[in-house]
Deep mutational scan, measured.
Amino acid sequence: MTYRVRIENADGEVVTIEISADELREKGLTLEELLPPNARIVEVEEVEP
């Protein structure tokens, strides 16, 4: 499974990243732990691999 994640950074700019569930598991991280300081998740969407 892959996630498309929209993130708002500290400057108010919204960027989109895609990350797979396998990648998260391998790194032992959650989506929140990948965020840079002062950023927030705006939207998470599951996409087909």
Rank of each mutant, 00 (worst) to 15 (best):
M1T: 10
M1V: 12
T2H: 14
Y3N: 00
Y3L: 11
Y3R: 01
Y3W: 12
R4K: 07
R4E: 01
R4T: 02
V5E: 00
V5A: 02
R6S: 09
R6Y: 10
R6H: 12
I7P: 00
E8R: 09
N9C: 13
N9T: 15
A10W: 11
A10D: 11
A10N: 08
D11Q: 11
D11A: 10
G12V: 00
E13S: 15
E13M: 12
V14D: 04
V14L: 13
V14M: 12
V14G: 04
T16F: 09
T16G: 02
T16P: 01
T16L: 10
I17P: 00
I17A: 01
I17G: 00
I17L: 12
I17F: 14
E18Q: 07
E18L: 15
I19F: 09
I19V: 09
I19P: 00
S20C: 04
D22E: 12
D22G: 09
D22Y: 13
D22V: 11
E23L: 13
E23I: 10
L24G: 01
L24N: 01
L24M: 12
L24W: 04
L24A: 02
R25V: 09
R25S: 08
E26N: 12
E26R: 14
K27P: 02
K27Q: 07
G28M: 06
G28D: 05
G28Y: 04
G28T: 03
L29Q: 06
L29H: 04
L29D: 02
L29W: 08
T30C: 08
T30A: 07
T30Y: 04
L31G: 00
L31E: 00
L31M: 07
L31K: 01
E32I: 11
E32V: 10
L34P: 00
L34N: 02
L34C: 07
P36M: 04
P37T: 06
P37M: 08
N38W: 10
N38E: 07
N38I: 02
N38F: 13
N38Q: 06
A39Q: 04
A39M: 09
R40G: 02
I41D: 01
I41T: 02
I41A: 02
I41C: 04
V42P: 01
V42W: 06
V42A: 02
V42I: 15
E43M: 12
E43W: 15
E43I: 07
E43T: 12
V44R: 02
V44I: 14
V44C: 08
E46K: 11
V47R: 05
E48T: 14
P49Q: 13
P49N: 13
P49I: 14
P49S: 14
